[in-house]
Design a protein around this nucleic acid. Sequence first.
DNA 1: GAAAGTCCTTGATATAAATCAATCGATTAA
DNA 2: TTAATCGATTGATTTATATCAAGGACTTTC
Lengths: 223, 223
Amino acid sequence: MPVGLDVNDMQKLDSIVATRKHVKQGQMLFSNGDPFTSLYAIRTGFFKTCLSNEDGREQVTGFQMAGEIIGLDGIVSDHHSCNAVALEDAEVCVMPFANIEDLSREFPVLQRHVHKVMSREIVRENGMMMMLGNMRAEERLAAFLLNLVQRLHARGFSQSEMILRMTREEIGSYLGLKLETISRTFSKLSEDGIIEVKQRYVRILRPDELKKITNPQMSPSCS
Amino acid sequence: MPVGLDVNDMQKLDSIVATRKHVKQGQMLFSNGDPFTSLYAIRTGFFKTCLSNEDGREQVTGFQMAGEIIGLDGIVSDHHSCNAVALEDAEVCVMPFANIEDLSREFPVLQRHVHKVMSREIVRENGMMMMLGNMRAEERLAAFLLNLVQRLHARGFSQSEMILRMTREEIGSYLGLKLETISRTFSKLSEDGIIEVKQRYVRILRPDELKKITNPQMSPSCS
DNA sequence: GAAAGTCCTTGATATAAATCAATCGATTAA
DNA sequence: TTAATCGATTGATTTATATCAAGGACTTTC
């Protein structure tokens, strides 16, 4: 946080993230209907958030990794409206929302940060609507892989290879496709020499080609 | 606002919504790339927000009516990332976001309200992902009509009939379908005696049947 | 190390929605 | 009033993805 805060101020802000919680792979951090008390900052590990229908259909609404915030869905109704499941053993900071609101009034920089985090989530979901409403399977998977590797790279990992933390079915649910379609699309990208896939391991061999798939109409001179 | 605020406080809060702006049908209130300065509360009229791709594909991300807030997408990057277009002549309150942040620090009730508005939008978009990822055309249109008429009813209009403010193409874009599919699905619901449609006029004849379409797996005893 | 359980891949076929095309109706302009 | 335009409907056909089905590759358990 880039501000002129003194030691006392820093201690107050630290109090937001004072308590931590471990979540084992497969466990839920919170689930639909739970009372909302806190936002969670992921310290380590990997989560999915998902909704389930009355008739059992599941929609994965996001995959979250270290440094990202989950739980924003709970603010509006004081209850969570989705499930947050750890896809690998994880540790989160529990940030009681009452504290966040109190300290936001005292520290404009925190207030601004909270607003940006929420707005970022809105913009991300706007992009998901574009993806789900307009893109073909290959475009969706290409955009998904580029987004994932970019976020991993921002955390110091490779910009070309990764280990997926989720199954084909979960990717499919996120992208509005069936697991078989995800599998076939991986195979297609692999046959085309654009990526290398071995189970959960993915390496991006030709990132430009992958980007071109997400922007199919781009003229060659623009690339 | 249900709080113990004195006259002076009320005047401060009113200052947020001091300036108004008229937007003619077809005009944009803001568009992708515009600097973000304000949120807008719709006083009268009807808007759509939409994203366009590099290659010209358009995704309608929402339809907004009186009392709803648009512009939240701009907070994260200080620039808007979508277009807001008036579908009929409209009037909005211009709410400078700097004022909102200042007064939110002073009035917890306003702070809370801002957080809920943003969270509500996140939850709505979660639901859209479920719709776009998992539902069939008939389910999407049924859910869309029920949502629209419910919001209109909350504003004092009929709970069974409405005039659509948007074209079939715009509905299709919102629901991830083509305009022909929207038209055919309207005709199907009409033939089944569930709704009556004449151009932009829609009347819901059998709301329970419409709800059943959105929850296809519900057993009869649950309805 | 065999068995069981997950997850993934691939093939054959079905299907919902898209696309292409023509017409119709309603509104606006001349 | 007649064009002209825009939006909506409907039909015929195509297509991308889903579905159904079988087998293969890892991983975990005992």
